[in-house]
Write a protein that binds this DNA or RNA. Structure first.
Lengths: 150, 150
DNA sequence: TATTGTTATACTCTATAACTATA
DNA sequence: TATAGTTATAGAGTATAACAATA
C-alpha cells in the first residue's frame, strides 16, 4: 500500500513546484537574475542585512557556494559586504541602493505575476493547502534528520 | 490584499518542496546519483525506453543538457542509446541491465524512505493536498503560457 | 522547411575540503 | 578548539545558438 499512497502526493508536489519554478524562473531570468541570485535579493529585501551564516541557512545555499553568488551580485553592484560590529569573524551582506531598487522592481511584480494563479484557488482551498503543506514539510524534515543521524 | 494572499501559499509550497528535495537529494546522493540522473533513471524505469524528446519533456531537461546527462549515465553503463525504428532522426534511450538493477535498488527504497512522511498525513489530508496541488499547478501552467505568449 | 539530437561556448551552481582570522 | 567566511578544485547542470542528418 505504501507505494500507491506515496507516489501521487510526491508527484503532485513535484509537478506543482516545477510549474511554479518554471513560471518563476522564466520571469526572474527576464529580469536579468539567476534563481539563486533572486533568492538572495528577496531574502535581503526589507532587512538591514544579515551575516553570511544566516543568509545561507535561509536560502539553503552552502557557505562555499554563497561566497560565489554574493561575489557575482556584488560585482553587479546589488549587494555589499560590511564588517559585523559584534563578531570580527562575521561579515554582513546587505542590499545597496541599487539592490533595493532591483528588489522593488523585481519582487512585487513577481508576486503580481504569480497572484492570478494563487487567487484562482478558493479562499478555503488556500488555507487547506498551506496547512497540509506545512504538515508534510515538518514530516519531511524529520526524515532528513533521521538520515543525517545514520 | 494580493501580497498577503500570495506569499504564504508560495512560501509553504517552496519550503515543503525544499524539505522534500533536501531529504530526497541526500538519499539519492548516498546512492551515487545526482538528482537529474535519478530523475532519468526513475523516468526510464518500467518502460521499454523512449526518445530524447519525450525524456526531455518528462524531466524538464532541455535537449542540450540532456545529451550531457545521458552521456554521463551511459559512461557509467546505466543507459544506452539505440536507433529509433520509426524515425531516423530520433534516438531511443533505455536502461541497461545494470541500469534496471540500479532502478530497482534505488527507486523502491527511495519511496520507502519518503513513505513515513507522507503517511503521517491523515488519509483525507493526502487527498486534499493532491487536489489542491493539482489545481494550483494548472493555474501556474497558465501563467507560464501567458508569459511565453508575450 | 521543420525537427531530432549533437556540439560548442560560456557561465552558474554545487559539493568538498583546506585555509585564515577571529572567538 | 571551534566558528565564520574565503579559496581551491573538480565536476555537473544550465541557457543558448549553430550544426548535421533526416523528415
Amino acid at each position: 500500500m505504501s507505494r500507491a499512497t506515496v507516489v501521487p502526493v510526491i508527484r503532485e508536489l513535484a509537478r506543482c513546484y516545477q510549474a511554479f519554478e518554471r513560471a518563476s524562473d522564466a520571469h526572474i531570468r527576464r529580469m536579468g537574475l539567476t534563481p539563486p541570485q533572486f533568492d538572495i535579493v528577496a531574502t535581503l529585501g526589507n532587512t538591514p542585512g544579515m551575516a553570511f551564516k544566516e543568509l545561507g541557512s535561509r536560502t539553503l545555499i552552502t557557505k562555499g557556494t554563497l561566497t560565489g553568488v554574493v561575489d557575482r551580485l556584488a560585482a553587479r553592484g546589488l549587494v555589499e559586504r560590511a564588517a559585523s560590529p559584534d563578531d570580527g569573524r562575521s561579515t554582513i551582506v546587505r542590499l545597496t541602493a541599487e539592490g533595493e531598487r532591483v528588489f522593488r522592481e523585481v519582487f512585487e511584480p513577481h508576486l503580481a505575476f504569480l497572484a492570478p494563479a494563487v487567487e484562482s484557488l478558493p479562499e478555503c482551498g488556500r488555507k487547506d493547502l498551506e496547512k497540509r503543506l506545512r504538515q508534510l514539510r515538518e514530516a519531511l524534515e524529520k526524515r532528513s534528520d533521521e538520515l543525517a543521524r545514520q
